[in-house]
Design a protein around this nucleic acid. Structure first.
Length: 206
DNA sequence: CGTTAGATTCTCT
DNA sequence: GAGAATCTAACGC
């Protein structure tokens, strides 16, 4: 299967996102090869999208999102999780696709070690689980997906599935924008959860 | 199967 | 200082 070229990513994320469903993310490491079949994604735009990390302009964290397409954007959240995005749009513009879930189709043994305690179905069922199952982290931020290196995306073998769309998961703003895309009926798609503001006990009650 | 609380620290205001 | 593009365990049915 052909490697996805940089021009594929040089479009708005909402156009790239559905085209990524069914594609394979190939991750080579010292331990061996892991391959993920992508089943669920979300698109995030730039300064006009209040749910995007790029909403308030370029910062040290989001610099990669404003750079050229075809690179990996890794962010840290909830004090303990990493998630991965594919940067889209031409250089200087900001958009990206969050890889939310997938099925491990090669290197299941390695993914099981990385996510001990998980069932095979749940290995990459969720953005942080997926990142951990593939052994990716902060150090992979900014990696090139199109240089033929150890992290590449292969075109899908078939488009024999239905694409479903809906609101983005865990997002508290712009909930009317249906920029979540998934393969209908696929068991590895994560469960939808609306954002819920968390309440922390106050250390200084009045 | 479903729902819910708590964990834990980075990032930008 | 507030809140976050989440996960897991624990509970109830």
């Amino acid at each position: 299967m052909p490697v996805v070229p940089r021009s594929f990513f040089s479009r708005p994320a909402e156009d790239v996102a559905p085209d990524l469903l069914g594609c394979l993310l190939v991750r080579d490491s010292a331990e061996g090869r892991r391959v993920l079949r992508i089943t669920e994604v979300e698109a995030y735009a730039g300064p006009l999208d209040p749910a995007s990390h790029g909403y308030r302009g370029k910062t040290p964290r989001t610099a990669v999102m404003f750079g050229p397409p075809g690179f990996l954007y890794v962010y840290f959240t909830y004090g303990m999780h990493y998630c991965i995005n594919f940067v889209c749009s031409p250089d200087e513009e900001c958009s990206a696709v969050l890889i939310r879930a997938g099925e491990i189709v090669e290197g299941v043994d390695l993914a099981r070690v990385a996510r001990s305690g998980s069932t095979d179905r749940d290995l990459a069922r969720g953005p942080a689980r997926l990142t951990k199952a593939l052994g990716l982290g902060r150090e992979d931020n900014g990696r090139d997906l199109c240089d033929g290196g150890a992290l590449t995306v292969l075109e899908r073998e078939s488009s024999d599935f239905t694409v479903a769309t809906g609101p983005r998961v865990g997002v508290s703003t712009a909930t009317e924008i249906p920029w979540r895309f998934w393969i209908e009926g696929d068991r590895t798609v994560s469960a939808y959860k609306a954002h819920k503001a968390r309440v922390r006990p106050s250390a200084t009650p009045s």
